[in-house]
């Protein structure tokens, strides 16, 4: 079954750059400046909210967006495995 899972993940990985076709964000997930255009002001609570992510929008500055997307996708795969491997490990330690 492992071989099929690897093939499955590779197919999914190769499909991720197709997400770049969409130029628009999800409904509501606009940048704060866009709210000025929509309602005439930027809601006070939205300003300076959140942190600057290391890889904003899955894009590495200056890198081709298809490569950026693929590398981000690979980071996602590694993080997913890291999380559950860690969770499994914690259990064995407790016993």
């Amino acid at each position: 079954m492992r071989k099929e899972i690897v093939i499955f993940l590779i197919i999914m990985l190769v499909l991720t750059p197709f997400g770049l076709i969409s130029e628009y964000p999800a409904w509501g997930e606009w940048g704060i400046e866009e709210f000025r255009g929509l309602v005439g002001y930027i809601p006070a609570g939205m300003q300076n909210a959140g942190i600057q992510a290391p890889i904003p929008d899955y894009e590495f500055g200056g890198m081709n967006s298809i490569f950026s997307t693929l590398i981000s996708a690979m980071i996602g795969i590694v993080a997913s495995f890291g999380f559950f491997l860690a969770l499994k490990h914690i259990k064995t330690k407790q016993r």
Partner: peptide, 9 residues
């Protein structure tokens, strides 16, 4: 994770 990256306009 991967399928959430595939944005569909």
């Amino acid at each position: 994770f991967l399928i959430m990256m595939i944005n569909i306009p």
